[in-house]
Structure formats: structure tokens, C-alpha cells
């Protein structure tokens, strides 16, 4: 019983997260179809909508007399982010994109993988990109 409440600490050995990382790299990023992209001088400007938070709705209602359901947000990508965004085509995996990014900018493979993965996470948090599981795994994302 105590074991269930306080599970014994397990020691982590180097690289235990290896297969997870491999799996994440094999996932295929897919763009949110409701996000629009416009090429600008500095890079691509992404425009997307998010649901307004309840506290924001209340403030807005008090000030403007109506409740906004959704609000529009913008994200300006730099040239590196833009090049990665353009590579997201619903077919290439994160690993494929990392390799192209590595070759394009003469980076180390690991360096490119970290950069692309972190960028995907940032896009994912904003709902601009979702990751589809690699083929052979369960459907959906």
C-alpha cells in the first residue's frame, strides 16, 4: 500500500529517455489549417486564433459590453523559424526536417534536432502545429 502512495525511487541511468526521443523525432508535424501565414521582409508572419480566457472575457465584457469568444494572435518568425515552417508539409517527420535544417545551415545533427524540436514545442504550445504519430502506431493526433 505504502509503495503505491510513495513509489520507490528508481535510479535513472544515462539515456533512459532514448526511445522516447526517437519516437518524438519520428512524429510528423502538421500545420493547423486555421493558421494563416504571410511572407514578410523579416520572415513569415503567422496569424492564428485562440479562445479567450474567462478572466479576459469578463474584463472585456465590463469595458466593451460584449464577450469575445476568440481573439486573434500573431507570431513573427525569423528567417530560421520561417525555413522550418516551410518544411512542415504533413509528410516529413521532425527528424527529416532536422536533417534538412542541418544541411541547410551546416549545423551539427544533434544541434539541429534540438533547435527544430524546441521550435516545434513552441508552435505546439500555441496550437499552430500538431504532431501525428509515426506510421505503424495508433491513428490521430
Amino acid at each position: 500500500m505504502l509503495n503505491k502512495i510513495f513509489p520507490p525511487k528508481t535510479r535513472r541511468h544515462p539515456g533512459e529517455s532514448g526511445p522516447d526521443r526517437q519516437y518524438a523525432l519520428a512524429c510528423i508535424p502538421v500545420k493547423n489549417p486555421e493558421c494563416s501565414a504571410r511572407q514578410q521582409k523579416e520572415g513569415i508572419l503567422l496569424t492564428y486564433t485562440v479562445q479567450a480566457k474567462p478572466w479576459l472575457r469578463k474584463i472585456f465584457k465590463g469595458a466593451a459590453g460584449r464577450e469575445p469568444e476568440i481573439i486573434q494572435r500573431k507570431l513573427q518568425l525569423d528567417s530560421l523559424g520561417s525555413s522550418v515552417w516551410e518544411m512542415i508539409d504533413g509528410r516529413q517527420s521532425v527528424e527529416d526536417i532536422s536533417r534538412s535544417f542541418q544541411q541547410q545551415h551546416q549545423l551539427g545533427l544533434r544541434e539541429a534536432e534540438i533547435s527544430v524540436s524546441e521550435f516545434m514545442q513552441q508552435l505546439g504550445r500555441r496550437g499552430l502545429v500538431a504532431l501525428r504519430e509515426p506510421e505503424g502506431k495508433t491513428d490521430g493526433y
Partner: peptide, 22 residues
């Protein structure tokens, strides 16, 4: 091989995302 962890007096290398040598 890629250095996956670099600390004072310690190196861990990975090969295809798996640890291979420390």
C-alpha cells in the same frame, strides 16, 4: 557518435539516440 552529456570530467556519447559510451 554525439556527445549527449558534457560535464566536468564526464562525457556520455550517443549513437542513434541511444547511449553507447560513457
Amino acid at each position: 557518435w554525439h556527445p549527449a552529456a558534457i560535464f566536468p570530467n564526464y562525457l556520455l556519447f550517443e549513437d542513434r539516440h541511444r547511449p553507447i559510451c560513457a
